[in-house]
Every structure is written in structure tokens, then in C-alpha cells.
Design a binder for these strands. Structure first.
Lengths: 365, 365
DNA sequence: TTGAAAGCGCTAACAC
DNA sequence: GTGTTAGCGCTTTCAA
């Protein structure tokens, strides 16, 4: 069955219909409904009344065609985990506040077509719907600019969140990772830790690279020593932690590139009979909800995903409306906040010889 | 600055332009681009080539106006927590698979306008954009039908997820809460627990009511005894748990209406010197990521938010395309799954006298 | 303050 | 196979 709008429902009310019902021209009706000043008060009142009674609703699709403003912004963020979901919520709220709505989409691989075209197809799907701007959370830092050329070639503003694409002409909003890592380092130093470790994420992610350099830098500056191990994914955290903790000179604290690694570290410590925080202080990064569920709750650097989403939306909209015109891409890094919980304490004065400490509570899984 | 589509970008390519470039009529171009069979192979090839070269992209806004199919579905779900986010992801993936995109929106209260109009405004915002269907996660079970009359009056299919609105003409997808609660009860019974408790949620939420009746029913059937305490929100869980555990006849196990309550219960138990699971077995509901982070990890009834979202999307789309025409609202309840973890063990044979057990380890926070 | 005409980009319907 | 015509609901422009 063909489903043209004319068959769609009983209430097929458009401007023409209201014009007929009120005896005014379509144009006057249009003006009245859009609150234009050049309509007589009486006329407007009558028109609004009739529109209301007939259940009229404007068609933003058509408005979009005419004006080029669909009222939609593409939100290319997968709401998984606290971080993604937080950004989505922040962006949503700001968009709505400014009368926009987010068209949600993220990389989705059609088995038939393979991974290759997925990224480009994603862009096309939203561009074809004439979104006015795009907010993107890149999968990794190596997304080829090619895919996004289409976006700015069409004059559609693009903002990336959390991951900065250096070779792309796009605005960016993220966390000040270096500052956050420095906070973690300074917290541990203040507690007297001098021999520490860092469980780092893959360097190809700029955020992880920044956290690493920020942390190592701060520790080095204080003449502490830091062993860094880079891991592939959270699953590897447990093994890596064990490796670190078996070192002759066992670190008294470890800084994690991400909260996700914490569970693995806690398990490793438990297996080795080390107590957190007494034998090992742990600091995470992100403040996922996981952090406060752990025992002991995790000291961590709190990011502000909601704020990142909000600011990204603000920037896109400002670009759309021409309020923001800087030729240079905007870069915004929100300062994170250290949340001290139970996983960090003063470094003990006891010599931290691995074998001894491990023997003391062996079997205490 | 006025931003009509004509000023938008250099590539302002439409059918007319391609028609001119190829020397064919607009109609032929349209047919070729939509892969209609009645176009000569040669013609099509030429047209597609030119379209590609000019960087043509169809305007789905216009297509929507013409055909009444905007290609968008309203997703009125806030992606907060594992559950909301899971539903959003499930719905998204299915929608995309079927060439739709979700327009994301949820209740958002404009300080200026107050709460009153928020629900209706939300509906209007998506309806004005001519979504073809609506997937809704109701805030509570008392959402007045009024707000959704607009939806079905316009012939737009509506599916609610997780919460069934009995007085609304809408399809529904959720969890089989009764069955899930029964699983929890049977698990505890199988472990030998006879004296149990239930930390219930407010009855006004149908899901909580179902979990309660399912659990109480199964326990009663096995001649066990169950003390139920209804709480307002997760914050109240800790106090309620304490109350339950102070009862003369202390229960050996507790079933939580939701995983959220677990942290409060764990804390209460710790305060009273009770060990989980030895002194108290705990079963949750939902299997949020929280469940596996706790110590000990929580035995719980796993819901399938992703599946719920997916099925909801399937139903809306089937309604849109006329594949599903049942006059009666469809109701689908996905069967949950019991996930046994470390928070439940066999009921101990030791008499469970509260004062004694508590004294034994008093001060052991 | 109001109206008429033209057109946004596209498609359904029908004719050849 | 291909083209012509009309129109979707609305806004811009210009005229009254």
C-alpha cells in the first residue's frame, strides 16, 4: 500500500486548510504561526485558535528543505559505558535547549558490505538527512580524514569529542589528560610514594599518550621512579599488574590509564596476597561508576563526559548559527578533578620486598 | 545571514543538475538513482557516473515530504546506566539494519516552562519532524494517555519498553519479571534457604510489582517464609536491609528488586558484622555492570536490555511498513536468565539468631 | 497589514 | 524505456 502523507491520517492539516478555514491567505497564516510581528492581533488570534482546534503541527521536514535548517545534529557516539552515555546525555540536553534534536548513529558494520565502507556510509546516512552539524566520537585516532572531507566540503560543522583527529579540520572537546595525570602523580607523591608504576593504554590513542607523559613527567620531576607497562585491553590488566608487582623493587602505587583496568589489578593483588591500599595504592582515570563499587572504592581522576558533550553541542550550534566563525579549529580541554577514595594511603615505611610481603599472606585469595 | 540551501555549499547538486549534465529528463535520473528496473543499462550507468562525479547526495528531507517516510524513528529513552544505554543500542542497531535512524530525545525540563508541558513538548518535537514511529521508555507507569493520543491519532506506531502503560494503545516489550523473580526464588530454595527477605521497589512500577509477586508466590508455594520491605529508592536500601537483618528470625537470604540496592545491602551487612554470602545470600535483578564489580560478585537475574531495544525497533518498523497490522497491542516479554555468582551459597545449618551472630563479629566493619 | 506567484528537490501518475 | 505534468507543505520575494 502506498503511504503518501495524504493517506496518513485523518488530521491532515496544513497551512492551506487553515487558510481556508479562516478566510486568510496561506501567507498570513504562515506569518501568524511563526509569530511574525507584521500580523494584526485579531488575525493572529483567530488563526492560532483554528490551528489549535484542528490539531495543526508544522512540518519541520519541509521547513528544513526550504531553509536548509533541519533542526537536527548528528550525534555519532555509541552510548556504551558511563563515558559514552555521559557524552550523549550532555550533548542531548544542550541541543534540546537550543531547539535541536540529535540524530543518533554510530559505526555499524553490515555483514554484507564489510567494515570498509561502514565509516563512510555512516556519514552519508546523516548527511543525506541534512543534519546541520556533526558531533563525532572517533573509534581511534587513525580515522582517515577522507571520510570527513565530505562533511566540511558541504559546510557542515564537525566537532570531535575525547579523541582529537590532528589531521582533520574539526573542532575538538576533550579532557585535559596531562593535567589529570599530573594530579594523580602529585597525589601519590604527597602520600610519600616514590616508587610507582603506570599501567598505560596503547600509545596510538592520544588520550593515553597524554596521561602517560603527564604522569611520568610529574614523577620524574619529583625524582621518583616509574615503571610503565603498556597493555592492549582491560583483559590484559591483570597479567600486567602481576608482572609489575613481581619486580624486585615492587612499586608501592600504581596509576591506571583507565578505571577499567582496576578490576584486573585488584584481582592480581588479591592473588599475590597484597592488600589494597596497605600494600599497594591504586589510582584510576575516568571515575566510572565501577570506581565506587570496588572494595576499596577507587581513587580516580574524574572526567566530565556530560560537560564534554555539552560543550561539543554548544560549539556545533554556534558554528551553525554563524556565532562562531574562527577559521582555526577550536580546541577545548576540560580540567578533570581528583576524587580521593579508599584505594590510596600513605606509603608505608616498611621495606617493600616482594617475596617477603607475598609470603606473609600466601594463599589468602 | 540567511542560510538557504542554495548558499550552503559549492556542491549544490540536485536531480535537475544531473539531468542537464546527462541530457536525460529529471524523471529518468530519479529512476536510475533509485535502482528502478525500467531504465536502460547504458542510461543508468551514465547517470550514476555523473551523479558520483558531481558528489550528488539525495535529500531525504524532501523524500520524506513526498512519501511520508522520513526514515527516522523517535527513540525516547535516556541512555543512563547499563539498562537505558543497552536499550538504546539494541534499538539503534536494528533500526540501522533496516535503513532507519533514531532521533534521540527524552524528557527534558525547561526551567522556564516547568515540568507540566515537558512530556507533551517532547512528543511534539519528534512528531513535527515527522518520525515514522515512536519507541518510548516511560518515566513511570502513570504517564497520562493524553500525551500519547497525539501519536496514535496521527497513525504513528508507538512501542513502550520496560514499562507497560496499560491504558495506552501501544505495543510493549519488556522482561518477564515474574519468571525472573521465580528463578531467583527457586535458586535460593534449591540452596536450602527457607527464611528469606525481599527488598521491593515501589508498587506503582509494574515491573517491581511483578518481581514481588513472582518471588513471594514461589517462596510461599515451597512453604518458605518471606519478609518484604518496600523502599523508595536505592539510598534507602541500606537502612531497610539493616531493619530486615535485625529481625528476631533473621533471613538467610535476600532478593533485591534491583541490582542498585546491592551496595546498600553489602554495606549494611558489613556494618552488622555479617558476611556475604556465608551469613547472608544476596540475589539481584538486572545484571548491571555493578553486579560483577562487587565483592563478592552478585548473583542476579540478567535482563536483556539490548534485546528489548532490538525487538521494540522490529515491532515499530513492522508496523510502519504494514507488515504488522494486529489491532490488538503486541506484548512481548523476554525471558531473563539467572547468573549465579559468589553472593549466594547453601543456607548454613547453624541457627540464625541475629544477636548471637552479630555479637560474634561485632566491630568487624 | 495582507496577498500572489514562484520555487525548494523530489516523486506519483499517466502518457507515449 | 522515457518524458510530461502536477503537486508535497512551506517560505521567499515582491507587489498591493
Amino acid at each position: 500500500m502506498p503511504r503518501g502523507p495524504q493517506f496518513e491520517n485523518v488530521f491532515h492539516v496544513n497551512l492551506r486548510r487553515i487558510a481556508e478555514a479562516t478566510g486568510h491567505s496561506q501567507m498570513t497564516v504562515s506569518r501568524a504561526l511563526r509569530d511574525r510581528p507584521d500580523v494584526a492581533v485579531e488575525t493572529r488570534k483567530r488563526i492560532l485558535g483554528v490551528a489549535e482546534k484542528l490539531g495543526y503541527r508544522p512540518n519541520l521536514l519541509v521547513q528544513g528543505v526550504k531553509t536548509g535548517r533541519s533542526g537536527n545534529i548528528a550525534l555519532l557516539i555509541c552510548p556504551s559505558g558511563d563515558f559514552g552515555a555521559g557524552m550523549v546525555r550532555g550533548a542531548h540536553d544542550e541541543l534540546v535547549r537550543r531547539q535541536y534534536l540529535p540524530l543518533l548513529h554510530w559505526k555499524w558494520v553490515d555483514a554484507a558490505k564489510g567494515v570498509a565502507g561502514a565509516e563512510l556510509e555512516m556519514i552519508h546516512r546523516v548527511l543525506d538527512r541534512r543534519v546541520e552539524g556533526v558531533i563525532l566520537f572517533p573509534q581511534d585516532d587513525s580515522v582517515p580524514d577522507l571520510y570527513f572531507r565530505e562533511v566540511w566540503q558541504r559546510g557542515v560543522p564537525l566537532v570531535t569529542v575525547d579523541r582529537h583527529l590532528p589531521r582533520t579540520h574539526a573542532d575538538f572537546v576533550g579532557t585535559d589528560d596531562q593535567a589529570g595525570a599530573r594530579m594523580a602523580a602529585e597525589h601519590l607523591l604527597a602520600l610519600g610514594h616514590r616508587c610507582v608504576a603506570h599501567l598505560a593504554g596503547k600509545r596510538k590513542y592520544g588520550t593515553y599518550a597524554d596521561r602517560r607523559s603527564g604522569f611520568e613527567g610529574a614523577i620524574a620531576k619529583a625524582k621518583g621512579c616509574c615503571v610503565t607497562v603498556e597493555i592492549e585491553d582491560p583483559e590484559a590488566a591483570s597479567r600486567a599488574a602481576e608482572r609489575i608487582l613481581r619486580a624486585t623493587q615492587r612499586p608501592t602505587a600504581v596509576f591506571l590509564a583507565a578505571d577499567h583496568y582496576a578490576l584486573g589489578v585488584y584481582h592480581a593483588a588479591a592473588r599475590m596476597g597484597l592488600r589494597i591500599p596497605d600494600d599497594l595504592s591504586v589510582v584510576g582515570f575516568a571515575d566510572l561508576s565501577l570506581a565506587s563499587c570496588l572494595t576499596p572504592p577507587l581513587t580516580t581522576v574524574r572526567q566530565d563526559p556530560y560537560g564534554i558533550g555539552r560543550e561539543a553541542a554548544r560549539i556545533v550550534i554556534d558554528r551553525c548559527s554563524g556565532r562562531l566563525t574562527s577559521k582555526e579549529p577550536v580546541q577545548l580541554r576540560l580540567t578533570p578533578e581528583l576524587i580521593v577514595r579508599g584505594s590510596t594511603v600513605k606509603a608505608s615505611d616498611r621495606p617493600n620486598d616482594t617475596s617477603q610481603s607475598a609470603r606473609r599472606t600466601r594463599g589468602g585469595t
